[in-house]
Every structure is written in structure tokens, then in C-alpha cells.
Design a protein around this nucleic acid. Structure first.
Length: 442
RNA sequence: GGCCCUAUCGUCUAUCGGUUAGGACACAUCCUUCUCAAGGAUGGAAGCGCGGUUCGAUUCCGCGUAGGGUCACCA
């Protein structure tokens, strides 16, 4: 059997990670066995559905690299829905019912399904057999009018028409399944396999929802998360490959994915873990790719290239990386302002002027450095001077390295001076050191 | 409240009756070190409770408890 799965979002807002997670699972399951992955936009709610949300869904799915084999809009199927609705009413398995409107927008006439009662059960691929007593559902509404089918009806018809073999969706649909099966039977349609995914909780331990502050996936993209990280993290919420691997690419996920390893219990969305997954994937990037993701045109390109290792080691998102470029790492691109007292922080009281002497010999050593010297080379030249100071037994290496690093960075916390010099180049480094000496001599 | 689902470290999870209950993230300590970051090492940290079944239960069953989902003319 050729597998067909679908992702059926409703475009009534920007989708969050929980929504896209069902897309990820449906996609992985289909692609694992070379099946089809369908996207069906459930836009039957004409009032709340917005085209901008539809655009966003396709945009984000493309961003995640989840490509659909077919795409549909539920609203395109109106004629088909109408046809089957009429059939049901003609069969007397559904009927037009006079109503007293309870809320604004309510119709005076709706179509209700004649509930046969009894119990309905199905075998969920993740949870096993689930049985529901369908009697207490009553004669539920399946359409507001012949041209306005309600979700349960449209889903059943569309899944069948689109030849969906596996309906993979969130666990919050479990209780909808029984009534959908009832409609299926009345229509004589085949029942797909069902797989209800464990829900994703937020920090309040409730189903992820925009109402309680779940971020839209677009926000993560804008914050500088990598799609491969989101994908990786989402796939691991409620599933695991069965071994100790933690970082899998889309290709590897497709190869490994198995519904049998999907968890039954809900999982809590953990931004801290997401961050670390994202950092992993950032570190996998080549320097060029990293820079293009950074998209930071306002700084010196050559220095930026050299700063990438620093960013990879410190930033967990590209947003953070950009912040660093204008914050703690800004000294790489602009001359720092120095505070005389900080410069002298490691100066020994009985050695007035020691810092000046140290900086002077440092600048002499650094000026002779070859162009493009690596931080290791710099270290080989600078460290002996610091060690010599330590050998004197007074200030230690810090007496040399602290003023050096501060002269270069203007910050009490920064990357080590060797790395700074290798990025700044010897000329600029010496100029900054001389600037520091001038401040001390003032 | 009715119905349904779920239950291993703080979090994501491994274990498909027999393990010193493993890994990852986070955390702590140490090492490295002028600072920060990274890195390395080490450590603390879990089977919800009670009954069964069994030679043996985290694992199977029942009950309890807890949490969640769902009860729309939204999807």
C-alpha cells in the first residue's frame, strides 16, 4: 500500500511549534515509506480564515523543507461536500433541523447527523484501541447549510477523496474521531489509519496554544533559529530514534522515523533545549553559510569571517550573534573606550608604571607579527612575555595579560587577547595598546 | 462534571519481565585559564501509590491518585 498523509491546518492565525510538529511527523512518516505528503488548508471558516495566514503556512513549511506532493484548499471542495450532504439528507441519515439561534451568527436551520448511538472503536497506531460511546454526542451538526459543511464532515470527505491512508494529528482530536467515523460509515467511505500524536505542553503544563503565549514559528525564524534545529527538536518531542543520537538531519529523520517509537504521553516544550539544539546546528555551518545567515552587512567583512568561530562558541541563535557584534564583541569592529582604573586593575602598588612597561614591550613584540597571524602564533609571541612576568613572582601573567586584553577590548570580559589580536591585526592592536599607554602616561 | 487519554531524573527520553535503570539538555564541582565563552573530567538527580500475575516487575492486569484532552452552528 502506498502511504498518503496530510497536514490540515486551519489558517486562522499564525501557527506555532505544536501545529508544525504534526506536519513534521506526517511528513516523516510518509517519506519514510516513499509515500505522499499532502497539505490541505482547512479554510471552511470563511470569517476567521485569512490569506496571509495561508501564505505564512506555505512559507514556513518551505522553510522547514517539508515539501508537499499535493496541496488543496478545503473550500475548493464545496460542490463535493454539498453533493454528499444532499445524499445524506436524501438517505435520511442526516436531516435539516430547525433551531433557535443561541449565539450571534447561528442559523435557524442546520444539518444534523442522525446519530445511530452505540459504541465506536478504532485502533490508534500510537495508543491502541480506543472505544467511545457515541450516544451522548446526540445528533451533532455536520453543516450550517449545504454550502457550509462543518469540520467533521469536511475532514472525512476530503481525507477519503484525497486518498489519505493515515490520518496523523494531535491527540486533541481523539475525541473527534468517533463522530468522524460515524460520518464515514454513513457515507460508505473507507476508514484511514489513525495516529494521534502526544500533545505538546507549554511551561504551564497545558496544550501549547497561542492564547497562552506560544510563539508563532515565524518568531523563532526571526529570532535566528535554524530550520534544521527546529525540525530536529520538533521530531524529538514525542519520538526518538531508539539509539543515543540526538542530532539528526531531515534526511536522517526520514530514514529513521517510525510511528512505533512515538510516545503516548505529552511532552513539554523546552526552549533551553531548543537553544542548545540550535547551537549545535549553527556550529555545523560553514563560515560562508554562517555569515549569510547572520545577514550583517554593516561590519568589516574580513574581521567578521575571523569572528565566526567566536560567534559559534558563544551564540545560540543568530539573533544573539547579531547582538554580540554590537555588544560584547563590538570591540572587534570599533575602537574601545578605556578606563584608566580598569587598565590598572592588576597593577601592583609597589610597582608603579609596571603596566606601562609591560604594554610597551608587548607592542614591540606584536608589531613584528606577520600579517594574518593565527591566535596560536600570537600566543607564541605574547605568552613568553607574560610568563617572564610570572617568573619574577609578583604580578603573575595577569599583570601582562589583563592590561593587554583590556587595552584591546575595553571590556572586563572578552575573548582572550591572542584571538583579539589575530582578528584585529597587528597594526590595529599596537595602535590600541599605544592608546592605552597614552592614557596611563597622561 | 461526563467521556477519553496519559504517568521513568527538573525537561526530552532509553529499557519491549532479570540492567549498578542508560543518554541528552539543564544544574553543581573540579581541571584549563588574566576575564568571559568554549572545551575536558566528575557528580547529584527518576520508575506516583496500593494490590495482584510471576521464580522475578519500571515493564503485564486492576484499583486509586495526579495531570491532560474533549464536550461549538472553530478547526
Amino acid at each position: 500500500m502506498s502511504i498518503v498523509t496530510r497536514f490540515a491546518p486551519s489558517p486562522t492565525g499564525l501557527l506555532h511549534a505544536g501545529n508544525y510538529r504534526t506536519a513534521v511527523f506526517a511528513y516523516l512518516f510518509a517519506k519514510h515509506s516513499n509515500g505522499k505528503f499532502i497539505i490541505r488548508i482547512e479554510d471552511t471558516d470563511a470569517i476567521r480564515s485569512k490569506s496571509e495566514y495561508i501564505a505564512s503556512i506555505f512559507e514556513m513549511l518551505a522553510w522547514l523543507d517539508l515539501t508537499a506532493d499535493e496541496t488543496y484548499r478545503q473550500s475548493e471542495h464545496r460542490p463535493r461536500h454539498r453533493e454528499l450532504l444532499e445524499k445524506l439528507v436524501a438517505d435520511n441519515t442526516a436531516y435539516v433541523s430547525k433551531e433557535t439561534p443561541q449565539a450571534p451568527g447561528d442559523r435557524e436551520e442546520v444539518i444534523r447527523f442522525r446519530n445511530p448511538g452505540g459504541t465506536v472503536s478504532f485502533t490508534d497506531m500510537i495508543r491502541g484501541e480506543i472505544t467511545t460511546d457515541v450516544t451522548d454526542l446526540g445528533d451533532f451538526i455536520i453543516a450550517r447549510s449545504y454550502d457550509e459543511p462543518v469540520f467533521h464532515f469536511a475532514v472525512v470527505v476530503d481525507d477519503a477523496d484525497e486518498k489519505v491512508t493515515h490520518t496523523i494529528r494531535g491527540g486533541d482530536h481523539i475525541s473527534n474521531t468517533a463522530r468522524q467515523i460515524l460520518i464515514q460509515r454513513a457515507l460508505g467511505l473507507p476508514m484511514p489509519f489513525y495516529a494521534h500524536l502526544p500533545l505538546i505542553f507549554d511551561h504551564t503544563h497545558k496544550k501549547l496554544s497561542k492564547r497562552t503565549g506560544a510563539k508563532a514559528l515565524t518568531e523563532y525564524r526571526d529570532l535566528g533559529y535554524l530550520p534544521e534545529a527546529i525540525l530536529n527538536y520538533l521530531a524529538f518531542l514525542g519520538w526518538n530514534p531508539g539509539d543515543d543520537r540526538e542530532y539528526l538531519s531531515l534526511e536522517e529523520l526520514v530514514a529513521t522515523f517510525d510511528l512505533a517509537r512515538v510516545q503516548k504521553g505529552s511532552a513539554t516544550f523546552d526552549e533551553v533545549k531548543l537553544l542548545s539544539v540550535n547551537q549545535h546546528w549553527m556550529r555545523e555551518l560553514t563560515i560562508d553559510d554562517f555569515i549569510s545567515h547572520l545577514n550583517e552587512a554593516s561590519v568589516d567583512a574580513e574581521k567578521l569571517r575571523k569572528a565566526v568561530p567566536l560567534l559559534k562558541e558563544r551564540a545560540q541563535t543568530f539573533g544573539q550573534a547579531r547582538e554580540m557584534l554590537s555588544g560584547e564583541l563590538s570591540c572587534l569592529f570599533a575602537e574601545p573606550e578605556l578606563d584608566r582604573n580598569v587598565l590598572l586593575a592588576k597593577e601592583l602598588p609597589d610597582h608603579p608604571g609596571m603596566t606601562i612597561l609591560a604594554l610597551k614591550s608587548l607592542s614591540e613584540a606584536i608589531i613584528s607579527l606577520p600579517e594574518g597571524a593565527s591566535s596560536e602564533t600570537v600566543k607564541e609571541v605574547v605568552m613568553p612575555l607574560a610568563n617572564a612576568e610570572e617568573a619574577k613572582g609578583k604580578g603573575g601573567r595577569g599583570a601582562v595579560l589583563w592590561p593587554l586584553r583590556y587595552a584591546l577590548s575595553g571590556q572586563e570580559r572578552s575573548p582572550d587577547p591572542f584571538t583579539l589580536i589575530s582578528i584585529l591585526g597587528s597594526a590595529e592592536s599596537v595602535s590600541r595598546i599605544r592608546n592605552a599607554i597614552a592614557i596611563l602616561e597622561r
